[in-house]
């Protein structure tokens, strides 16, 4: 079995589902002959034809809006925003229609669509190519917000997203698109969209994260282990609706929690998890919940971007602070 990268897993999932479900169509800018600017849709147009893999005119409102129309008419569109920084014109269609139609029509109309977007910083890209704005979507009811952090989870979660009867935002951490390869059987097996994944067991502190930052958290856990601190690492994977039980169970065990994300701190999704912990796990906490996040600034252009992104050091220090507290 071939070893594949995260982005190849995205392609593999798309190809699998397109082969098994004729209603699945892919649309976006440069997704056709070019196979997407990151090659996520490489070879799909050749295999499935121009009507199933559509290069659209350059207009995100168009892409998002026709995606809603396609989905309502029984298709399963997978739309691509070329970068997460260009998703803003799509938000009106997503927030006002995709996420509301089921509710508006009392279930008569549904929007089984997926919006994919390369997400996050750290690849020395130009302005607007490094945004982390998942928190703008986690606050929209009726939407699922999903972010894989490994090739296997990209494959399984994307299949689940396409099959889900409701609209799903699927954010792909581009920094780890090609970070490593693993075996991902092309067996069409979806992963559940309602669980967080415990990637490493630990007893002293819980590191909660998603997307590319999983890498830094696992490295931090290694470093902490060398210092005699046992860290549990949770990949949230599906941010909304949240599997809080898995997080609560872990934090109840460890008594300490560090939430790590790239997006700005204020009103980032970490704030939601911290609030839930204070509501539901306060008496199990041995130390204040820590957040290691992007700062409340725009992510700088690339000369300074690594100073913005949470580093292993910052995560280790935060974890140590939680241990020093009690």
């Amino acid at each position: 079995m071939a070893q594949i990268t995260l982005i190849e897993a995205v392609t593999q999932a798309l190809a699998y589902e397109m082969a098994h479900d004729e209603s699945v169509v892919v649309l976006g800018e440069d997704v056709g002959v070019n196979g997407g600017v990151f090659r996520a849709t490489q070879g799909l147009q050749e295999k499935f034809g121009e009507w199933r893999v559509l290069d659209t005119p350059l207009d995100e409102t168009t892409i998002a809006g026709v995606t809603v129309g396609l989905a309502v008419q029984g298709m399963k569109p997978v739309a691509e925003a070329q970068f997460e920084g260009f998703i803003y014109p799509m938000m009106e269609q997503i927030a006002c229609h995709a996420a509301r139609l089921r509710n508006r029509t009392r279930g008569r109309m549904t929007v089984p669509a997926v919006w994919r977007a390369p997400w996050g910083g750290g690849i020395r890209a130009p302005e607007h190519h490094s945004e982390a704005n998942e928190h703008l979507f986690t606050n929209i009811p009726g939407l699922r917000v999903v972010m894989p952090s490994s090739p296997a989870r990209a494959y399984g979660l994307l299949l689940a997203a396409i099959r889900d009867p409701d609209p799903v935002m699927f954010f792909e951490p581009k920094r780890i698109y090609r970070q490593y390869k693993e075996e991902v059987p092309d067996d069409g097996e979806a992963l559940p969209l309602d669980v967080c994944f415990v990637l490493r067991d630990g007893t002293d502190v819980t590191l909660v994260t998603w997307g590319a930052q999983v890498k830094e958290c696992l490295e931090a856990a290694d470093e902490l282990a060398q210092k005699g601190i046992s860290a549990e690492v949770i990949d949230v994977a599906t941010l909304t609706p949240l599997d809080f039980d898995t997080i609560a169970e872990s934090v109840t065990k460890t008594g300490r929690c560090v939430i790590v994300h790239e997006a700005p701190k204020t009103a980032g999704y970490g704030a939601e998890i911290a609030a839930r912990l204070s509501e539901e796990c306060l008496y199990s906490l041995l130390a204040p919940v820590e957040r290691v996040t992007g700062f409340d600034t725009h992510i700088p252009l690339f000369r300074l971007e690594m100073k913005y992104l949470p580093s292993v050091e910052r995560i280790v220090e935060a974890a140590q602070r939680t241990l020093a507290a009690s």
């Binding site: 056709g32 002959v33 600017v37 005119p57 350059l58």
Partner: peptide
Amino acid sequence: WAISVPRRIQS
């Protein structure tokens, strides 16, 4: 051209 998308696809 708009990256890989030819003029005819735009309009």
